[in-house]
Design a protein around this nucleic acid. Sequence first.
RNA 1: GGGCGUGUAGCUCAGUUGGUUAGAGCGCGCCCCUGAUAAGGGCGAGGUCGCAGGUUCGAGUCCCGCCAUGCCCA
Length: 1146
Amino acid sequence: MGDATGSDGAAASAPKKDAGEKKAGKNRYRSTLNLPSTDFAMKANLVQNEPQSLKRWDKLGLYERLRERGESQPRGRFVFHDGPPYANGSIHLGHLLNKCLKDFVVRTRQMGGWDCPYVPGWDCHGLPIEHKVMTELVESGKIEKLNGLDEDTRRLAIRRECEKYANKFQKLQTQQMRRLLTVADYEHPYLTMQHDYEGAVIETLAGMVEQGLVFRALKPVHWSIANETALAEAELEYMDREDPSVYVDFEAMDASAVYDAFGLGAELTAEDAESAEEGSGAGLEGANAQRYEGGAETKEQGSSSVNSVPSVVSPLGRPGQTPTFMIWTTTPWTLPANMAIAVHPRFVYALVRMDGNVTVVARELVDKVAKIGGAEGVEVLAETTGDRLVGLRYRHAFVESLPAFGEEVRETNTDKVWTLVSAEYVTLEDGTGLVHTATGHGADDFNTGLREGLPVYCPVREDGTYDETVSEWLRGEGVFEANPKIVKHLRESGHLFHHHDYEHSYPHDWRSKTPVIFRATEQWFIGVDREFLAPSEPEDWPPASLRERSLNAIMLDPNAEPSSASQKQEIEEYWQIRAEIHAKSLSNAGVHLTPGSSSAEIREAFKEFNDPQFQASFARIHNVEFVPEWGKNRMRGMLENRPDWCISRQRAWGLPIPAFFTEDGEVLLTAASVRAVARIFREEGSDAWFKNDAGHLLRYYDVDADPDVPPSVSSCLRGDSRGLRSKTRSDHGTLRKSGDILDVWFESGSSWNAVMRERSKSEAHPEGEDFPIELYLEGSDQHRGWFQSSLLPGLAVTGRPPYEAVLTHGFMVGRDGQKLSKSKGHTIESLFENHGADVLRWWVASLPYEGDMKVDEEFFRLAGESYRKVRNTLRFMLGNVGGGVHEGMSESANEGQDSSESVAPSLLRSIAPTSLESWVLGEFDALREKVVSAYLRYDFRAAHAALYDFCNDTLSAVYLAAIKDRLYCDASDSERRASAQQTLRALTDGLCRLLAPVLCHTADEAYRSLLGVDKGDGATCVHLLAFPEASSVERDDAWAKVMEVRDEALLALERIKESGLENPLDAGLILPDPDGRLGRFNAGDLADLCGVSLVTLDAAGDSVRVEDLRERYPRCERSWKRGPDVRERGDGGVLSDRDAQAVVGV
RNA sequence: GGGCGUGUAGCUCAGUUGGUUAGAGCGCGCCCCUGAUAAGGGCGAGGUCGCAGGUUCGAGUCCCGCCAUGCCCA
């Protein structure tokens, strides 16, 4: 190598000479040293080696071994429950994160002294799979054949394909998760399509039916007229389509109420009115009114803020004509079902004169509407905000009187029909700012209707034709055919302001390619506001709704000790609220609270308060813990606002809702009937629903013993009025089966019952040992998903939440902090190939998972580098611990099964408080405490950082550097060396255990290397061990001072480099020791710690001094240290006393 | 548009109840070692704490608004 380049000065020749010296020394004594040696390779080769570890653990039956040991775990059971991923496709980065975090939880609990079983699950039913299967059936042409079959057979055929599909991907994902080195009961996973699981879900439903929470009501869904079926979002295809765009005037019922709302003065005289009408379009001289020429670009209005105070008030007084409200729609066929008009409460609306009519339009849109309609004379008469319009009544354009609505399950308010209502989703982009609201034909409309108590009205039948409730001229007409008729009718009756054809993107049925409509259909719901008494609750308690219960359940226990300021405030508020609510009862009981009473006083007052209402409100608090804490607020917001839960879907791949209908349309769905079907599902699976008639499905149902059966259904079931033959199949067989299946969220939301209660039931624990569950851990999207879908059934059936704590993680985002694009996602396989599972796990452990996490290929590479540092530290220690297992290891540690004997106690007792060993073991104790506590509070990132820093700083930079000399140069049997080795062994053992939950391959590999087990030994495994115990070795209190002085020394050595003293081994240090504390330490230890040859202490010194030893002492050819005892020996070598003796010993 | 989050060195992140000169790792620069060597060690340079207001003796930290971005909803 070009070392001649630039080495032409006198300065360059000196180091050259030095290098020559070293070379000679190296050749002479190298073989007499104890240099590191280990079979633990520097190169991890994870891609090849991890699968071998996996095989070894499989052979060992690691999961089963852990379970066998479960009974004896000192801290009992930790109940953790896996949320089921969807059995579709390959796992991706989101799964990677989720599964690693779960594995960390399971493994840290396991090693922390708990028994932590982990049953992985898969969500198998549902539309994504069915949709995929249907697409394949369409592409292969097989669908034609299926369409010729009867519905049950058709569905069975589809279900068979879906099941195959789900099985395939469940298996694929299992392999990938195993490759991630996660430990789980993969031999016995739970699948939501397993028979027992299905039965348990239906039993959960039965529990909710029993509480009266399940009901049927109308709700609009996407509806394919061609196939007469409901469609899911995924089955829609958006295509362009031309529809009539109509602007329709609805006449106000009470003109003066409208003018009041616009703040207009008293009514005009007849004369005024006349002249006003004459002048329409021309405007009035001198009037302060804004004038618009039809279609002219008058933009002043349009550019002003929506929220500004209405500024234009017409001095005209009131026009003598009835104003109208103008709406816009592209689905005129929904007009017969118009129930209300929605306005935005904060938008400004204008009362305008437009082509002679007086109408209401959003101020921002006056221009646009006038232009579209080609209105010639436009004049704003007055303005007001939307909230002032709310409640105004109008006349329907062609419906004379309200139709007779069917019996609504929900409370409705027909007074609000044909009034203006408030809605936040109204926009100013299109239309008029007044939105035609048909509760039976739109999602927004439906929600508005729910809030306002409007009836859900849908006059459209399954085949897309109007039913008998509409105006005569529309009856039986198809909705799309009705469009022109309605337009014509509106025009003729003078309600049409404008009509043109309009091309827009419109949803179509993906199969028939025909346009879909929104149509209200009967769906099953779980009512979140229906009050009930949970099974275990005393009868004098007040009933409560799921909404109230769920909010209570996640609420903080007001008697708990607050751990943060926000908690303290929450508790404070709780007591204040209770004081208000119960003030009267308390006062009756002789307790008087003043408004200024502190929460402590209130709490005291409540102590002996026996009001059942109060007791209930307490008992329903379950203090579910959220990690991070804000998850609770998030969930609370959602629970406060969530609508009733629609649990029915019109699909094939799912669990049938076990409802039956009589010929008269009466429904049978009682707790007993549902349980009867559940029993069938347990025995035969849910396919039984499609293979059998009601007679078979209700085989276990005894109508006579069912108190809840509706009388009409009961008589139908009994077959005749004589009440005989009540249990015969043929009579049940006349019932029609429901065609709906359950929302898959209800299935996964029942897993606490179907898996955890079910699988942990025993004689000793009839209710299931694993319920309630201690922890759910999922992405933060599950606040709306699984956390809620589990919470509601849990509360309904058991009266308590299924979990005690909820831990959430965020999502992967790209480097730029933006959503990760699916296309460029790294495949899991490529990540395994390029990095190995341990590196991926190491990376996951480093993530701040509470929020969004940035991902980039480079980050995996960086994680790999950081992993390598840890690996090298382990390797160095393994290289220096000496001849494997037999040297000084206790027998118990040798067996690799004992948790507490990792550091030989005899050794520890002999360690002096001033020794390097005492320092490093003390540091290890601190690390152990830090890491274990971080693990147990799920702060894997803190554990990761602590472990990394310990390897690099405490070990690599300080301790290992300091003991190199004694390890290499001391005589093999020196006590000093043995002590260091024992310590190394303890540290390596401890480090392996602490690393094991994250680096499960590497930690095991290192541990096995430490014990020197051979490849054939499959039983030695770090994962069967516990975290290390503290060494609790005694440590001199001056160690902090020593490390402080060391820092100073390193700085001083750095500074001295400029003067040519570049190698610290050529230097000696004079350390200040005013209080004599350093004097307690061995000078050689201090020198090793600072990396120099000699240390002397100076009681009078006040700073570190460096001395150049190069002239004073020769350099030992073996240890390369300089010192007074270095001299030429008998063999001609220049050696220190220690080295001379060591050489003799060899 | 709403609810809940996030925004601190080039990068990834710590920053306890508001209190010295805002920390760490990576990367970068310079240097040492060549007996952990496709390793190891030392020193150093990097920040208007997203932007703009406010409260306070004092704000990365508390309040308000805005911008960017994520999840969920509309």
